[in-house]
Amino acid sequence: MSTDPALATPPELVTGGPLIAMHDAIVARLREVFPTNKFTHGFVDSRLTPVEWGDLMRLKPFVGLGWGGARPSDANGRRMSATAEWTVFLATGNSAGPTQRYAGDTQGPGLLAMVQVAAGALQGMVVRPPRAREPVGTVEVSGISNLVIDGFQEKNTAIAGIDLRIPFTLEWIAGADEFLRAGAAWVISADETAGPNDDIDIREAP
């Protein structure tokens, strides 16, 4: 197996690679600073409906991660250089009023404290896959927003988004045999007589 995360054979990219390493590293760090016995964790799809947002907000205080895509460099050649974009979603609720929702009290954590902890824990974090000699890249907090979700209205909820950028490079080391191995590397357990299941439980932690 390659020890450089930028140089990977196709089978390695099925189970690993830079994007998967980023996801795992961000989730692990968030679970360290927001314990799972006090906060609900989950993955946030970019296409959630207002109803699905409502389902998530019932789980607050909530910590979620969403993937926004990747922007390749204009100067790419054989090796692809790009910047991955992620967003951490933080939500809390308090019926006592806006001051309590943002500053916190005994009912729950304040959104401002959650933002400070998440941003401080992720800024400058080096993403390094297991057994890799070289890191994937370093996390940069590129923006923090007080979010208003279109179509979702719940006056006792406060939501923030923390945008992250992580540069990475990717190059396949591949001959014909490696591409065949990539096809064989996918392990999908499913009833071959059934169609794909599109029902995803958004409350399920990644």
Rank of each mutant, 00 (worst) to 15 (best):
W53T: 00
N76E: 04
E134I: 10
L112K: 12
A82C: 03
H41L: 03
V115I: 15
G104P: 00
V115K: 05
G68L: 15
A70Y: 13
P98K: 06
R71Q: 13
V51T: 14
K38N: 13
N156W: 07
S142K: 03
R78Q: 13
Q123N: 08
D74V: 07
T138W: 03
D74M: 07
T138P: 00
T92K: 01
R101P: 02
D55M: 11
S46V: 15
V51W: 09
S46M: 15
R133T: 13
G68S: 14
P61N: 00
S46R: 15
R47S: 14
L122W: 08
P129A: 05
I144E: 09
S81G: 11
F62W: 07
V127I: 15
M114C: 04
P130M: 03
A121R: 11
P50H: 04
S73A: 12
G137K: 01
D150F: 02
L111D: 00
T92Y: 05
T40C: 03
F62Y: 06
I144W: 10
G124E: 04
F152G: 01
V44T: 04
G108R: 11
A118Q: 09
R101V: 01
V115G: 02
R128F: 11
L48H: 11
V63K: 03
R79I: 07
P72N: 07
F39V: 08
G93P: 04
A119G: 11
I149P: 01
A96Y: 07
V126I: 15
G42C: 15
L147C: 12
G124Y: 04
V136A: 04
R128E: 12
M80N: 05
E52W: 02
G93V: 03
E85P: 05
L90N: 04
F89C: 05
R71L: 14
F62D: 01
A75V: 09
S73N: 09
L112V: 13
K38A: 15
L147S: 12
G108T: 09
F62C: 00
T49S: 15
D105I: 00
E85H: 10
R128G: 05
R78T: 14
R58Q: 12
V148D: 13
I144D: 04
Q123A: 11
V141Y: 03
Y102A: 00
P130S: 04
N94P: 01
L65P: 03
P130D: 08
